[in-house]
Design a protein around this nucleic acid. Structure first.
Lengths: 107, 107
DNA sequence: ATTATACATCGACATATTTCGAATTATATC
DNA sequence: GATATAATTCGAAATATGTCGATGTATAAT
């Protein structure tokens, strides 16, 4: 019998829920895979605005906004207003947290 | 811009949905963490029956059955009838598939 | 101040999920 | 065959989620 941090299961289930919706998963993957290696998420080049995501992924604007909010609340992405736009990018720490989950399940 | 297997996003969102429910996540973690290293899932010792899961996790029996079905359909666990009981265990291949997801999001 | 652009929130409807007791099915025992 | 045990399916009610047009709000430009 092994210790697992059962306190964190709520957090994990929230993040899994965030990724369970096809639109949200697509948005998340789009952000994650457009982060070129070596570049930091602090670099404007690899952030996407709400509008860009809607256009690129062909999702209604209000729907994108709604889903981004959920992704943000679960901790998977971060958002920051930059003048008229709101920029979005993945939260690396949360990714590491997720990766840890599947390490716990190994051996 | 990086290749990602967008064909597999449906499968991934299904698995994430399976883990998004607190009960299902607990069941899955219970199965996963009670697999002691070195033992194979083909070993009866580390399988759990539907009834055991319900008792140990204090979930109504029909609820457990329902959630196990969803975990199985998403490919996260396997089930096999053994006389009166149905034994459950995690599907290692699917775990690897999940782990791969977060490797894709890295770098 | 007016106008334009980008995003968030609201409202509303449709659909899906969750949960568990009750009824049903499968298997074993006597 | 009758009974007991284990699990699935059914039914039903409550709750949650998904979607998007319409409306509201924040910022910038003129």
């Amino acid at each position: 019998m092994y210790n697992i941090n059962y306190n964190q299961t709520e957090k994990y289930s929230e993040m899994f829920k965030a990724l369970s919706n096809p639109y949200r998963l697509k948005i998340f993957l789009y952000l994650a895979t457009h982060c070129r290696p070596g570049e930091l998420s602090t670099n404007d080049e690899m952030r996407y605005t709400v509008g860009e995501l809607g256009e690129d992924l062909e999702i209604a604007q209000s729907t994108v906004s709604h889903h981004l909010k959920e992704l943000r609340q679960s901790g998977l992405i971060r958002m920051e207003r930059k003048s008229k736009n709101v920029e979005c990018w993945v939260e690396q720490e949360t990714l590491d947290f997720m990766t840890a989950f599947f390490e716990v399940t190994q051996d």
